[in-house]
Write a protein that binds this DNA or RNA. Sequence first.
DNA 1: GCCTCAACGTTTAGACCTAAACCTAGGGAG
DNA 2: CTCCCTAGGTTTAGGTCTAAACGTTGAGGC
Lengths: 170, 170
Amino acid sequence: MDDYPLDGTAALPPADIAAAWERELPGVPTSSIGVLTPLWRAAKTLAEERRRTLARLGLDAATLDLLSTLRRSGPPYTLTTRQLAAQTLVTAGAISQRVARAERDGLVVRQASTASRRAVAVVLTDAGHARVGTAVRALLEHEEALVAALDPVEREALGALLARLGTAAG
Amino acid sequence: MDDYPLDGTAALPPADIAAAWERELPGVPTSSIGVLTPLWRAAKTLAEERRRTLARLGLDAATLDLLSTLRRSGPPYTLTTRQLAAQTLVTAGAISQRVARAERDGLVVRQASTASRRAVAVVLTDAGHARVGTAVRALLEHEEALVAALDPVEREALGALLARLGTAAG
DNA sequence: GCCTCAACGTTTAGACCTAAACCTAGGGAG
DNA sequence: CTCCCTAGGTTTAGGTCTAAACGTTGAGGC
C-alpha cells in the first residue's frame, strides 16, 4: 500500500480535474470539484491515519465507534441497538454485526432490555471499558497533533463550514 | 434505512461529544473533535447522497471513479492498473477488483499494454465512455446544487482549509 | 548466459457497509 | 379473543476495501 512509484501520474489538483471535465464535457458545472475533491481526500487520508493508529491498539474504527458511543453515554454504559444506530449514523444491520464481533471479542455483552422485552441492551464489559479508554486517549492525542496544522480560528471556521455543508445535503 | 424513530438519541453536536469525553476521561485533549466530527459527518452524508444519485443511473461510486479517471485522462482513454491506483488513491488490489466488475459489465476491457509487457492496459469501451458521460453530467449538476449552500468565497476557503488539513495528515 | 531483485497484477482472507428479507413480540381494533 | 400491523433485531446477498501472499516479467550485475 505504501508508495506508488509515481510515474508522473499521481492525484491531480482539483483545478486540473475541473479543466479535464470542461474539455471532455463542455459546459458541465465544475465548481463543486474545488470543495468536494479536497473533502474526499482529507477524509480518506485522516481515516487511514486513524486506522493505522487503532491497528497498533488492536482495534478498528467500527469497533471503536461502538465502544466509544457506549462509553460516552455514561453509566450504566448501555444502549439499545436502535439507539446505537441513531448515534453512529449506520444502519441497525451494521450495528448488529459490529456487536456480534465485539461480543465475540469480549468487549460487550447483549442482555434483554429492562425497558422493553423486544429491545436488546448492549452493555460495555470491564474489558471493553478499559480498552476504549486507552484507545480514545491515544487517538485524541494523535489527532490533536494533526489538526494543529490549523490555528484555532481556522479550526473553528472549518468546523462551521463543514457543518453547514453537511446539513445542506442531509 | 430511512428514518430512525429518533427516541431522543440522535447524533450529538460535537460540543456535547467533547464534554462527554472530558467527563469520562478528564484532561484528554478534545479540540480536534470540533473539526473531525463535522468532517466525518459531511463526508458520510455527501457519500450517501452520491450513492443515491448514482444508483438511479445504475452505477456505484467505485465504478464511477474508475470510469471517470479513464475518461478524464483523454484519448485514447487508457491507463494501467498502477496509474489508476495512483490517481484514485486506492490499492492496486482494489483496482484489480473494480476492473474485473467493470469488465464483466462491458464498460472496460483489459489489453496487453503496448509500452510494457508486464503492464495491463485498461481501456474504456464505447459503452463505458457513454455511461460515464451521462453519469458525470448528472452528478456534477446535483453536487453543484449541494455546494450552493456556501457562497463562492466560503467554498474557496473551505477547499483551501481541507487541502491543508489533508496534506498535514498525509 | 545466469541469477536475483524489483515492479506489476491478481488473488485471498478478513472486515465493513447497505438494502432487503425475515422473525418475533406487543398493542390496538373488532 | 383474534387478527394484523408495527417496531426492534438479525440475517443474507452483494459490493467495497486493505494487507499480504503469490505469480510473472524484465533488467541489471557478474
